[in-house]
Simulated assay, not measured.
Amino acid sequence: MKGPLVGYLVVVVVALAGVLLFGAAMLMRRLLAPVSQTPARLTTYESGVDPVGQGWSQSQVRYLGFAFLYVVFAVDAVYLFPWATVLRDADLGVASLVEMGIFIGVLVVGLAHAARRGLLRWTP
């Protein structure tokens, strides 16, 4: 079968397979999962903390710094390791090197900001 719609047919088949797999997983869960309606199971459970008191509470802003550092290092790993594995390819050229230099520069700015705020110290 050839023609301009073959590519769309593949997308439709893959989407249909995904929907069918999702439906089969939900059906199997419904059939096989144990059902027990105890009061403990019906209570709200949020992030490992039992719901006590009012709905509003203060959160620690200092965890935002650790989330920032995680994003810096995770993005670093996600983009640098694949780029380093294909670095031997001669077709990458100077443009790829410049792009990666800009990327590393942005990461260094993020790390400098983290260091300036004291997030890289081992002791509080």
Rank of each mutant, 00 (worst) to 15 (best):
Glu46Lys: 10
Arg88Asn: 10
Val61Leu: 13
Leu64Asp: 12
Leu69Arg: 01
Trp83Met: 13
Val61Trp: 07
Phe73Cys: 09
Ile102Gln: 03
Asp76Thr: 15
Ala40Lys: 06
Ala33Asn: 12
Ala17Trp: 01
Phe81Met: 13
Val52Trp: 06
Asp76Met: 15
Thr43Gln: 14
Phe103Lys: 00
Val12Cys: 00
Phe68Gly: 08
Asp89Lys: 14
Ala40Gly: 07
Asp91Ser: 13
Asp89Val: 07
Phe81His: 08
Ile104Val: 14
Phe66Asp: 13
Phe73Asp: 05
Trp56Tyr: 09
Leu69Asp: 00
Trp56His: 03
Phe73Thr: 12
Pro39Asn: 01
Asp89Trp: 10
Leu87Arg: 15
Val19Asn: 02
Val72Trp: 00
Leu87Ile: 09
Val75Tyr: 07
Asp76Phe: 15
Trp56Met: 07
Thr43Ser: 11
Val61Gly: 03
Pro51Asp: 08
Pro82Tyr: 02
Pro39Met: 00
Gly105Ile: 02
Gly48Ala: 01
Gly93Tyr: 02
Val98Cys: 00
Asp89Cys: 04
Val14Gln: 00
Val75Arg: 09
Gly105His: 06
Asp91Gln: 12
Leu20Trp: 10
Ile104Asn: 05
Val61Lys: 07
Phe103Gly: 01
Pro4Asn: 09
Ala90Val: 11
Leu42Val: 06
Met100Ala: 03
Met26Ile: 09
Gly55Glu: 11
Ile102Ser: 01
Phe66Val: 11
Leu31Pro: 00
Leu27Tyr: 07
Tyr70Cys: 06
Phe81Leu: 15
Met28Glu: 03
Ser96Ala: 15
Ala95Arg: 11
Pro82Arg: 05
Ser47Gln: 15
Arg30Cys: 03
Asp91Ala: 13
Trp83Val: 14
Phe68Tyr: 14
Ala95Thr: 07
Arg30Asp: 07
Val52Ile: 14
Gln54Phe: 04
Leu92Gly: 03
Val13Met: 03
Gly105Lys: 06
Tyr63Thr: 11
Asp50Tyr: 11
Pro39Trp: 02
Arg29Trp: 09
Arg30Gln: 11
Phe103Gln: 03
Pro4Trp: 11
Thr43Ala: 12
Leu27Ile: 06
Val78Gln: 11
Phe22Val: 12
Pro4Ile: 09
Ala90Phe: 03
Ser96Lys: 05
Ala77Asp: 05
Pro34Arg: 13
Val10Pro: 00
Thr38Cys: 03
Gly48Lys: 04
Thr43Leu: 13
Val71Tyr: 08
Tyr79Glu: 13
Val72Tyr: 03
Ile102Asp: 02
Val13Lys: 00
Asp76Trp: 14
Gly53His: 04
Leu16Asp: 00
Gly48Phe: 05
Phe103Ser: 01
Leu31Ile: 08
